[in-house]
Design a protein around this nucleic acid. Structure first.
Lengths: 199, 199
DNA sequence: GGAACTTGTCAACGAGTGATGACATATGTC
DNA sequence: GACATATGTCATCACTCGTTGACAAGTTCC
């Protein structure tokens, strides 16, 4: 009988992070309801009971998944002139952040999108959207209807994300010319959502 | 012992329709996973076993829920000039269809939106979106990138629907002036998505 | 070395799900 | 009226889920 050598030394914070990372990965791919705690634990190489122990409940784990501690502001690097282009780049993943940080950013949006429509996740998502996206964006805008314009830009961003990542409806990635026209059109849409009315 | 008078005479097609109507109602309010067959049956005043019997499976029932038999085309009543306004009206529910038919239309979109992100409902939704929205719209467009433009308009429509109906983020319903500005901006966004590039 | 605490393991609970098959009752046909 | 079929009822299956508590094993401190 081989005494099973503990493959990983006991480390509370490490397992907690492993669980959280696994949860982020799975919630970014599937529904709140379709992600099981056993699935998360298995992928993290951890006993399922630890998930409940470390986070209290699945709902609390999901909330933790959406928390941004020191993540960079969604409006970082955008000036008033480049606002529409900034949002287009956001969707086109032409982010100038380091790749690791960018992936986290994308993962977070995917989590948001996948579990919209789940009543248990609804309020959590609502709060995160308001605090991390709507408030920062509308605060950056000037002129009339700042909240309305921020909400409309977010609506476009979410709709495009759903089309691309969840419905897998891609009108992109064809010829480079089409790609360029897509980007131009996308920028125009964001401009229509964000820019102050000129008349 | 009162012999329980059958409140409703046995009628296969009537119960089938009752189940379908109840399913539509519930799927328009919650996730695919969060709607139970017992819930649907209970609301239809029907035994839960009948749901499986009449529709085979929950998945098949959901698919049936999204079928449009004789529903009017999403592009009905739109000319090339009023295209953007037509889409804005679609979201603003200023539909000129009879109220019953309009509710069905709205209900169908809500079903689509709520169960995006559910893997079991994913393919069904994808097919319905393609056949009932993308194809008719892109077929109506002229010029370059018709599919791309249709997809972008749908993205805007879905994003706005999510904001309004699921995240309950309303920048609307304030003053009439704001309302008018919102409609104007929304029309501009749809125009940016739908109109051919002029340069 | 032994006590006190932390971290991990295991088995099980109660609740809920979709689905199925046996049975009961109504309806239609001859 | 008697049979065959259509429709509805009931109990239950097999399964998955989140969560919990008892216990084992490692770690730290005295």
């Amino acid at each position: 009988m081989i005494p099973p050598v503990p493959s990983r030394h006991r480390n509370a914070v490490a397992t907690r992070q492993a669980i959280l990372a696994s949860a982020r990965k799975h919630f970014a791919r599937e529904n709140y309801e379709n992600v099981g705690l056993r699935e998360i634990a298995g992928d993290a190489g951890v006993d399922p009971a630890l998930v409940s122990r470390y986070f209290g409940s699945k709902e609390a784990l999901f909330r933790e998944t959406l928390r941004d501690d020191d993540e960079k502001d969604i409006m970082d690097g955008a000036t008033r002139e480049t606002l529409a282009q900034h949002f287009a780049d956001l969707f086109l993943e032409k982010d100038d952040a380091p790749p690791g940080e960018r992936d986290i950013h994308i993962e977070r949006i995917l989590i948001l999108l996948h579990s919209i429509g789940s009543p248990k996740a609804g309020q959590i998502i609502r709060d995160a959207v308001q605090a991390d996206i709507l408030d920062p964006v509308s605060q950056e805008l000037v002129g009339q209807d700042t909240e309305m314009r921020a909400a409309m830009a977010l609506a476009v961003l979410m709709g495009m994300g759903i089309m691309h990542n969840m419905l897998s409806i891609d009108t992109l990635e064809c010829t480079p010319e089409e790609d360029a026209r897509f980007e131009k059109r996308l920028t125009r849409i964001f401009a229509a959502a964000l820019e102050p009315m000129d008349d």
